[in-house]
Design a protein around this nucleic acid. Structure first.
Lengths: 343, 343
DNA sequence: GTTAATAATGACAACGTTGTCTCGAATAGG
DNA sequence: CCTATTCGAGACAACGTTGTCATTATTAAC
């Protein structure tokens, strides 16, 4: 059942080193031997033993490092990486961590030495912490970062970009087009660069439409339902209710919507609300939430592709045409339906 | 930065084999050497290389195998297993799969040979497929199953039980106590044993209260929001609306609630709705959902503990007092508030 | 005080793979 | 036909651990 490289070699009638060459796609093997070896591999269902590879210094696993409370985000990322791993016959190691821990960098380097992974995929907020990235560079640990922003060529490390600024611009533009002039912004955790970028996009869109930026409508907070509800309460209690709210993620937006509707403010008639991220539940809120959808699966796949190519130079040709920048898409649902529109 | 067992040995002034013994908690080491070795280990931040261990046949990783669309469930399980892995210095490999694939058993055996994991953690519905379990037994692949049911000693493989029947009984009992006599049951996917167990608990509770079981109120379907909404529509359109619905998970319940409220049926005044699983969003629906909460983290931790103990006999003493049966808890929220209760 | 038993440790092979080096065979150049 | 070059493939070591067995230090028994 369990077959080794030597079993394959015996069956194919070559030395086990030749089998190794075939597997690793080296060029110095005659076509004849190559096909014999492949036939034997198929016949025996042979798969190279990962541990032995690692030991010899040829990694074939990567790690996903995360500190993110959003389980849906993580699952989508994970799935994307796994899709890529399956294709390249890599294994995935999962490592959640506490990004605020003082030992975080030590923890990361240890993972590499301990479990022999070839590289790390970093998600926000870890991917956006300079001291973490610097340490990885210094220790020469391969990694790819998923970050909020648009491509900037001065980045030394591999990056995949999600253009939060542009997406926030688009969603704000949508609200403006629905006739809104007073649009509040509910920010997310300040540790995430995404929150800042989304604020920038929001401001840009307002300016592009010659609307004034009202600092009283820009409320900091956290990426949570409770934080969204709390800020809605604040605005309603103080009689400063705008006609629209842009929540920095769907949890915030749902929280705000929940509070508003429970306190006599109808959505979207009196108050339009938009979210961000397209969490699955946002299709099931009432009304359904307008939001911004990013293809986390594709983003993660690309990140894994880049990382694996970096780990095994020359083994796989990378898709150079594919872009490392991703732009989320506007998803219009009921929570921002036009005020004048027929029910 | 990267230190091996030999570095430790040199620093401690013993042979590297002695270090190995200390790490593996073998008894034949003098106390004096043992403390010297531990000191050196601490000083060098030494961590054994997993790949080398695997290679030599001492696995220190396990795999989580799943085919489950519920991302929250998976993340909670994953986190529980990781907590246990961290304690035992194990690594976790993630492997989603398609349980309906004809090659599923082959796929599982390959994971073991390929990546050298010591064993598998199986979640529903995979853990409840006899042909999968039988093959693993046959191939002598260590595994632990998380299954729906109560402990039955004739199980040959390691199991952790979640007593869905009892939990469903409790939730139905709660509905009866709220004064309901006509309670519909919205089932989940038939591939999951959990759905069947929950139905049994529902029926038991009705019988215990001398209530008739009305087969017209037992509706099969899927574990999804849409399926819940669809069945609510069916009941409402046919004028067969009961006074309460027990949805087999929170998605179903939320879907039913969504449809009911959008079609002039108030929850809980005209219709009480209870879910199952305590998905995070069920705290944020309106009204908030009564449901049944299972401690997936604890369940997964226990499963991992059992599996690791099985893989390394004698290395860790297992907590024999801890139970392998888990009973979900009733979480009463607003969606089943008593009809006569003051707003 | 000698011998037998036991406790503690070390030497060495082995796990399955890849990198380095070497060697033979085939090819090309004169 | 001989030599220089290139191509293909094998021998062997190495990676960092653990298992087996041999060896030494310690204790117990008489």
């Amino acid at each position: 059942m369990k077959s080794t490289i030597k079993d394959v070699a015996r069956l194919a009638g070559v030395s086990f080193k030749t089998v190794s060459r075939v597997i690793n796609n080296e060029q110095t093997v005659k076509e004849e031997s190559r096909s014999k070896v492949w036939k034997a591999i198929k016949q025996l269902d042979y798969q190279p033993n990962l541990s032995a590879r690692h030991l010899r210094g040829a990694p074939s696993s990567i790690a996903l490092i995360y500190d993110n409370p959003n389980s849906n985000y993580i699952i989508e990322m994970q799935q994307g990486i796994l899709d890529q791993c399956r294709e390249k016959r890599f294994e995935l190691v999962i490592h959640p961590c506490d990004s605020s821990s003082p030992d975080i960098v030590k923890e990361l380097t240890q993972i590499v030495f301990h479990s022999g992974v070839g590289g790390l995929v970093l998600t926000p907020p870890l991917s956006e912490m300079p001291h973490v990235v610097a340490k990885l560079e210094e220790e020469n640990i391969k990694h790819v970062r998923i970050v909020s922003g648009s491509s900037s060529p001065d980045d030394s490390s591999l990056c995949v970009y999600v253009d939060d600024r542009a997406a926030a611009h688009r969603i704000t533009q949508h609200l403006v087009e629905q006739g809104h002039r007073k649009i509040a912004f509910f920010g997310g955790d300040s540790a995430h660069a995404s929150s800042e970028k989304r604020l920038t996009g929001y401001k840009e869109a307002l300016q592009a439409n010659d609307l004034e930026i009202d600092e009283d409508l820009i409320l900091p907070g956290h990426y949570s339902f409770e934080s969204g509800a709390e800020r809605a309460r604040h605005l309603i209690d103080n009689g400063k209710l705008p006609t629209a709210i842009f929540g920095c993620n769907d949890d915030i937006a749902a929280g705000a919507m929940f509070y508003a509707q429970n306190n006599g403010v109808n959505v979207p008639e009196q108050l339009a609300i938009a979210g961000f991220e397209d969490n699955p539940f946002s299709r099931h809120t009432w009304p359904r939430l307008t939001t911004s959808r990013q293809n986390n699966n594709a983003i993660a796949q690309r990140a894994a592709e880049l990382l694996i190519a970096e780990i095994c130079p020359g083994r796989y040709d990378i898709n150079v045409m594919a872009d490392n920048g991703f732009e989320p898409q506007l998803v219009v649902r009921d929570s921002t339906a036009q005020q004048a529109s027929p029910k």
